[in-house]
Simulated scan of single mutants.
Amino acid sequence: MVVRYYQDLLRFCSHNVKDADAARDVVQETYARFLAAQRDGDPPAIQPGAVLRQIAKHLLVDRHRRAVVRAHESIDELQEFEQPAAPRHLQPEEALASMQVIRAYVGVIESLPQRCREAFVLHVFDGLPHAQIAQRMGISYSMVEKHIVRAMVACKNCERAQAASTKRTGDRTL
């Protein structure tokens, strides 16, 4: 029954694709999807020719979209100055700066008094609430708050120092 639409569908696809083999592939996929829909229990089409053409249109659009996505120059063929740069976080200078910031924060945390550092690590890295930290360390809730505030102030001062250092470095490169 739907075989009679084959030639019309092939002409339609050939007109849009300009490649006989590709047009035949689209028609074949169109019929495969049409028959799969019928097998899956979709009601029979009142106008199978229109349904086939609609499926073919969708397949042609998908084919065009894939072709657009794939249409790019090989990175190996680009001149060095035309090649895209690596993402900023992968740039050597950025990675070095990140490591320096991490080392500065680790240094600040390590320089805290032992009990203060312990409370801060339990709160920030282990995610424990103040009450659990107080219980675990055997100190008051108020003392936990003081330790954490002291550590956060130290980290904030480190952040300010890093920002000032970055600003001074940025000024020299201008």
Rank of each mutant, 00 (worst) to 15 (best):
Y105F: 14
A50V: 11
I46Y: 05
I46F: 04
E94S: 13
S74Q: 12
P48N: 07
E77Y: 07
V101W: 03
F81V: 11
Q91I: 03
I102M: 11
A71G: 03
A45N: 03
I46M: 05
H89A: 05
F34C: 06
A32P: 00
V69S: 11
F81D: 11
K57Q: 11
E82M: 13
E29V: 08
V68S: 04
D62P: 05
M99Q: 15
Q100N: 10
Q38C: 10
I46T: 14
P44C: 02
A50I: 10
I75C: 09
T30I: 08
Q100F: 05
A67M: 11
A36E: 14
M99F: 02
E82Q: 15
H72P: 03
S98V: 02
L59P: 00
L35V: 09
L59H: 07
R63A: 12
G107T: 07
M99W: 06
G41F: 06
D76L: 13
M99A: 12
E82K: 12
P48E: 04
E73H: 15
H89K: 04
E82S: 09
H58E: 04
D40G: 07
I102P: 00
Q100G: 08
A95H: 05
Y31N: 00
A45S: 14
Q91F: 03
E29P: 01
V108G: 01
R63L: 13
A56Q: 05
G107N: 10
L60T: 02
I55K: 02
Q28F: 05
Y105M: 01
M99I: 10
S74M: 02
M99K: 11
R70N: 13
V61R: 08
Q79D: 15
H89S: 08
A95R: 15
D40E: 11
R53C: 03
H64G: 00
A32Q: 08
A86M: 15
A45W: 07
R63E: 07
A67C: 02
A86F: 11
A45L: 09
R53K: 15
R53Y: 04
E80V: 10
A104K: 14
E29L: 09
R66Y: 11
L52Y: 01
Q79V: 07
I109Y: 01
Q54H: 09
P84L: 12
P43H: 08
I55N: 03
P84T: 06
P87R: 09
R39H: 13
D42E: 14
Q79G: 12
Q28L: 10
E94F: 06
E82R: 14
V108Y: 05
K57L: 12
L96C: 12
R65Q: 08
L78A: 11
A97D: 07
L96T: 15
A45P: 05
I109F: 00
L35Q: 07
K57M: 15
I46A: 11
I55Y: 03
G107F: 03
Q91P: 02
Q38V: 02
L96R: 15
E77A: 15
E80P: 13
A32N: 09
H64F: 14
L59C: 01
F34V: 01
R88Y: 10
Q91C: 05
I55E: 03
L52I: 00
D62S: 12
L60V: 03
G107C: 04
E73K: 13
F81L: 10
Y31F: 10
A85L: 14
E110T: 06
S98Y: 06
V69M: 11
I46H: 06
P44V: 06
P48M: 02
F81G: 01
